[in-house]
Every structure is written in structure tokens, then in C-alpha cells.
Amino acid sequence: MNIELPPLVALLFFPGGLFLLSAGTVYEWADRKLVARFQNRIGPRWFQPVADVVKLLAKEEIVPDGVNPVLFHGLPVVALVGTLTAALYVPMAGMAPSYSFTGDLIVTLYLLSLMTLSMGLAGANTLDRFSLIGATRALTQLFSYEAPFLMALLGPAIAAGSWQISHVDAYAQGHWWMVLTQPVGFLVALVGLMGKLELPPFDSPEAETEIVAGPMTEYSGRGWALFRIGRDVELLVGLTLMAAFYLGGLANPIEFVLKTGGLLLVTAALQSLFCRLRIDQTVGMWWRIGILLALAQLFLLAFMR
């Protein structure tokens, strides 16, 4: 599907700004609800994530002593802007990406990493011990999953012969689902996405039973709300990217909802199945298994072509 939108509309309403924010909260709700149902609970009502954000925005923001205030206020904005911008290059809601150029896949991936990077810096910016440990863990985890995740997404790109997301999407629509032809890459990418979003079992950067909220410990009010929305949007963008690459592309909104919803169901199940991994276990797993699998997949693809 392809609709031409005036740039301002694309930026503020669809597929940018307003749509992303509301769809992001909906996906967060769906994620929480699914995990709750997997655990035989009721889970939150549909407006809970919105209510959380509204409440946080209305709260006083406490700036702790000893932080750089510019960074403290700026980092949440950078994180959110990064993810919002990334959304412009993906086939959001089954529509063609608003902006597209050769190599936009790489740009998107880096924009998505901005989130984790900002969180790490935000944690390191404060004097809080929990934040510092959380920041160390967040950045350690970033360096471990980033490479395999990137390689796993390169697989479909190599198959399609283009590093442009819209081209890969179009290629995926016309061929077999790549989850069947490249199952290893799909697995690595899915787990990598969970690592990126710090979902359980990869949530040791913010393991509440050890370091409270990790890098986010000192954040309250607006900053925390922005990080949360940023994370929601990242979830949405990540799922869209995965569905476009591995699940036969996104041709229309219905396919978008079904495919990302299905992926969400799988990630929710994975979230509730495992015990949190220690940071050394996470890193060990990625470097020992994740990257090897991704590399093997990549070499195989290179030979096949």
C-alpha cells in the first residue's frame, strides 16, 4: 500500500508522532496483558499505559544532586526522538515508509540503538550506585547483542540484494516467508530484539530485585515518561521490522496487525518462560551462541547467492 502524505502530516500524525505514541502504548498494553494471561492473571485494563504516562507527565521531576542537568533533561528527548525517527523508515502499519533511501536499514538500526545508549548515559550521569551498575550492564548488553542482531537483519537484506528497508519488504512480499528459509536468523533477531528492549529474561540492566530500576532509578516524572514512550515506540518499530523482514512483508494494515501481534505473542511467551539471566550469562550466550549462529547464517547466504 502506498499513500503520499504531506511531510508535516507524516511527521506529526501518521505514521509519525501521534500514531506512534498511541500505537506504542497499545502494544505495551498488549504485551503486559499477554504476559499476565500467561501467568493466569487478569492484567491491566486497556488504558493503563496511557494512564501511567499521563500520571508521570503530571508529576514533579526531581533532578538529583550531582548530575549534568542538560544531559539529564536532554537524554530522554534524544532517546524518544531517535526511536520516532527510526519509525519513519519502516513500513509502519503496512504503509510504504515515509522516507526511504539506500542504506536506510543501517540508519534505522543505529537510531534504535540510540535508546539504549541514552539510557546508559542517563544512568552514568547520576551518582546513584544502582544507576551506575545498571548503566554498566545496559552498555555491556548493548555491545553483546548489537552485532548478532545486525547480522541477523542483514540476512534478508542480502537475500533481497538491497540495504533499503522498502526493497527488502517488497522482496519479502513476493517470496517465501524468510522465517522458513532463514529460521536461525529469525531466532537470533527475535532474541536480539528482546535484548534490545530489555525484556525478561534479558532485563538484568534493570533487575529490580538487585538494582531497583537500573539506569532509570533517579528518573521520575517527565524524563521517565519519555523513556517509557520511547521504549514502547521501539517495541513497535522492532516488531514492524521483524515482521517486514521475516514474516513475508507488510502489504496492508491488516497484515501488519496480525503479524506484529503474532510476534508479540511469541515474545510475551518467551518473557514469561525464563528466569532472568545474569549479565555474564547474557553476554556469554550472545558471544558464544548468538554471534556464531548469525555468522553461520550469513556465510550460508553468501555462498547460496
Binding site: 501467568q39 525478561p200 530485585t209 514469561s272 518462560l273 528466569c275 532472568r276
Partner: peptide, 9 residues
């Protein structure tokens, strides 16, 4: 240990 599912059950 972060195994909330076992906790809930």
C-alpha cells in the same frame, strides 16, 4: 531470580 511466572503460579 526474575522468574515471575513461577512466582505467580
Amino acid at each position: 531470580g526474575g522468574f515471575d511466572t513461577l512466582f505467580m503460579y
